[in-house]
Design a binder for these strands. Sequence first.
DNA 1: CTTAACTTACTGACTCGTGAGTAACCTAAT
DNA 2: ATTAGGTTACTCACGAGTCAGTAAGTTAAG
Lengths: 211, 211
Amino acid sequence: MTSTPATRKAQQPREETIRKREDILKAALQTFGSRGYKSGSLAEIADQVGITHAGVLHHFGSKDQLLLDVLVYRDKTDVAHLEGKHIPGGRGLFTHLVATAALNAKRPGIVQAYAVLSGDSVTDGHPAKDWFRARYAQLRTEVSEALLEVCGDKPPTQQVVDDAAASILAVMDGLQVQWCLDPDNVDLARASEFAIEGILSVAVASGKSRK
Amino acid sequence: MTSTPATRKAQQPREETIRKREDILKAALQTFGSRGYKSGSLAEIADQVGITHAGVLHHFGSKDQLLLDVLVYRDKTDVAHLEGKHIPGGRGLFTHLVATAALNAKRPGIVQAYAVLSGDSVTDGHPAKDWFRARYAQLRTEVSEALLEVCGDKPPTQQVVDDAAASILAVMDGLQVQWCLDPDNVDLARASEFAIEGILSVAVASGKSRK
DNA sequence: CTTAACTTACTGACTCGTGAGTAACCTAAT
DNA sequence: ATTAGGTTACTCACGAGTCAGTAAGTTAAG
C-alpha cells in the first residue's frame, strides 16, 4: 500500500491539471454553495468545467472528499488576498473582521455558500461537521486572544472573553443569513460593524470595571 | 366542480385524524431538522408514525407543503407555552429572548432543526425561503419596537435600531449553530445573554448620547 | 335500525427521475 | 510503454408522486 517509492519524486501533476482542479473546486463551491451539499450534484459541477461527473470523481475520489477540498480551498483563497500571510492580532483583528463584512456585502455568492454550508454541517452525519467544528474552535481562540490583547492589563473574566468571541462570530454568521434572505432590508456591512464594535466595547468595559 | 353544498357543513376532520396529523408534523420536524429538507425523506417521517409515505402525502399533498406546515406548527407550539398568547414588548421582550435561549439549551433537537432549516432556506429555490424572509422581517420589527420602547424619549437613530434588531436575532442564531457543532465549548444560554444585553445596552447608550 | 351512498385514511405497487460510484476503454503526453 | 485525464456506459439505490383498491367510518333515506 504505502509503497511511496523514494526513487520516484512525488510526481506533481501538470500545470494544466492543477488549473483544472482549481476550476472544479470553484465550480463545486458555487454549486454546493447555492444548492447545498446534498442537492448539489457532481454532474452540475462537471458541466461548469466541461467534463462529465466521472471526470470529477477521477480527480477527487468521492463527493465527500470534494466538499472537504472545497472548504480548505475556499479558506486558502480567502486568506490569500491579505497582503501578509496571516490574519492580524489585537485591535487589527476586529478591523479586519469589519472589513471582511464590508467586502462580503459585494460577493453574495461567497456569503450564500458559507451560510448554506455551515447550516448544512449541523445535520446528522454531515461529512464536514468536524471541519466546521474545528474551524469555529480556532476562530474563537483567535478572537479571544485578540480581545485579551486589546484589554491589556485589565482583562475581563474568561467567561466574558469566551462569550464575546463566540458572539462576534455568531453575529457575523447570523447577519449573513438574514442578508441572504432579504438583502434590501439588512445592511450587512453596517450591522456587522455595529455589532462587532458593540460587543467588543462591552467586553473591554467589563474588564475595566473589575476590581 | 365547485359544488360546495351549502347544506353540508365544512366537515372538520375527526379527533383521531387531528392527532395523527400532529404526530406527522412532529416526526417531520424531527426528520427535516436533523437531516435537512432534501435529505429528510417522507418514508422516514412516515415510519415514525407507522404509516407509509403515501399516507403522509394523503394528508399534506406534497413534501413542500409538509415543510411549510411544519414551520407554522413549530411556531405555534413555541408561542403556545407562553401564558399570555402574545410575546411581550418593551424590556420584557429581551428578557424573554434570554429566557428562550436558556430554554433552548435544554432542547437540542429544536435548536438543530432551526439551525438546519434556516441555513437550508437560503439555497436557491428553497420552498421555505419566503417563509423565513417574512419571519425574520417580523421579528426584526418586533425587536425594533421593543428597543424604541426601552429607550423612551431618547431614541437612537433608525440605523442603530435596525442594526441592533438584526444583530440580536443574528447572534442568537449564530450561537445556536456553534453550539450544535460544539456544545462543550459554547455556553448557549450564557453567551446569548451576554450578547443580547450587550447589544441592547450599546444601542440604548447610543440614544442617550445623542444631542 | 338498517341499508345504500359516499368519504376518509390509508396501503402497495408502480413510474419516473436523479445521482453516486464503477469499470472498461480511449487518447495524448512524458 | 506507461500513466494521467478523461469518456461512455453502466449499476444500484433512493425518493417523490400517482393510482387503484380497500377497510373503516359517516350521513341520509326508507
